[in-house]
Amino acid sequence: MRQQLEAIESMRLAPFGLRSAASRGRAYPEPESATRTAFTRDRDRIIHTTAFRRLMYKTQVFVFYEGDHYRTRLTHTLEVAQLGRSMANGLGGNEDLTEAICLAHDLGHAPFGHAGEHMLNQLMADHGGFNHNTQSYRIVTELERRYPDFHGLNLTYETREGMLKHETDYDVSEAAAYEPEKRASLEAQIANLADEIAYNAHDLDDGLRADLFTLDDLEELVVWRELCDKAGWRPGEHFSSLHRHEIIRELIGRSVTDVMRQTSAALEAGGIDSPERLQLHPHNVVGYSPEYGEKVRALKRFLYERMYRHYRLVRMQTKAERFIAGLFEAYIKEPHMLPAETYARLDEAPLARIVADYIAGMTDRYALDEWQKLYDPYIRA
């Protein structure tokens, strides 16, 4: 059955899409699945990890106690995966590989979103730093312990490479072991854009829901005015949740359409007819058109200034940094406060890295509970 699936996949893919049958394999040899392609198997392994389940209670922008309807790191990941599959399908890329990369791209995120990551990176400055993208890679290659013959998930080379070559405005990871002279695959580049489209749309949605900025504030954005015009809403009129949903849908649709149109043109102009040629191309081929890209950059600047730097979020981020720092300092000072299973890993890595791994794996709720156990004398340990 796997061979049939591989044959169907090969017929469907464009010449520059990565074929699972041509995968460079896994670090540890394993028998192939009888019913799944290699990339489908990667996707399934990622979904079943402890790290994936923990994303349910990790901050995207709002901490879990702010409300039940804001995005979490898990719902963000699912939105990214859905967008990634859609774009891969339209561009002739491998949907399963794209989805696997999308599902794994935030596995290593610390609790409390970028505030937690920022503080861990500061605390780890003398010990190699901390980056959630690199941490995601560590999870799938080392930290998840689910198989008797190897650490990690033993994912294919292509999924691991796609994870390490994931690039955003915030993240560029070291990929020395994965032919650094080559760019990311089509599927990994699609995952990058799916990530950006998802967070631009849902942060705008959540920011409106949370009243972090007003409809009048948004009028400065060309893209907002265009979206409202399409939705048939005019300033001064009643703005309902249905208007908000329609505008967010239109933003996602426009973004995906622009990326696919621009990418198709870039693939054709570059004469790209193989995965190798795509990865050796001097520029990423997946991206926005220049005109739409400027509108997206303006939206991102708006969200940074009016949402991410809003006093309510800054207060939350400041508290989060204090929680993370308190946990880190306590465990470094007295490692015996670490759980036995975590303490046992001190034979494998330096104390600071073990502590960072432990904290990064926490959900927001667990981190708050641990902080209370360590610092509140009325809370039982």
Rank of each mutant, 00 (worst) to 15 (best):
D44M: 13
A184S: 02
D106Q: 09
C102L: 04
H336T: 15
R309V: 13
R322E: 09
R24N: 07
G113F: 05
E341N: 12
M124L: 04
M1V: 11
E370L: 13
S289T: 00
G293H: 05
F213T: 02
R54N: 13
R24S: 12
M337P: 07
T214A: 07
D42W: 04
G128P: 01
A14Y: 03
H283N: 07
A110W: 06
L155W: 05
L55C: 08
L97V: 02
Y308R: 11
K182E: 05
G129W: 00
D258M: 04
L120N: 05
G326C: 06
G84L: 05
A352P: 02
A81M: 08
V355W: 07
Y170I: 14
E66T: 11
A194C: 10
H166I: 08
M337R: 11
H245V: 15
A360P: 01
A320F: 02
N131V: 13
R41N: 15
N192E: 10
A231W: 02
P111V: 11
S86K: 15
L242F: 15
D149G: 12
V285N: 06
F323I: 14
L368C: 12
V314R: 15
A298H: 01
P111C: 02
T159L: 10
T50A: 15
E237F: 10
M163A: 03
T72K: 06
M163G: 03
H151Y: 11
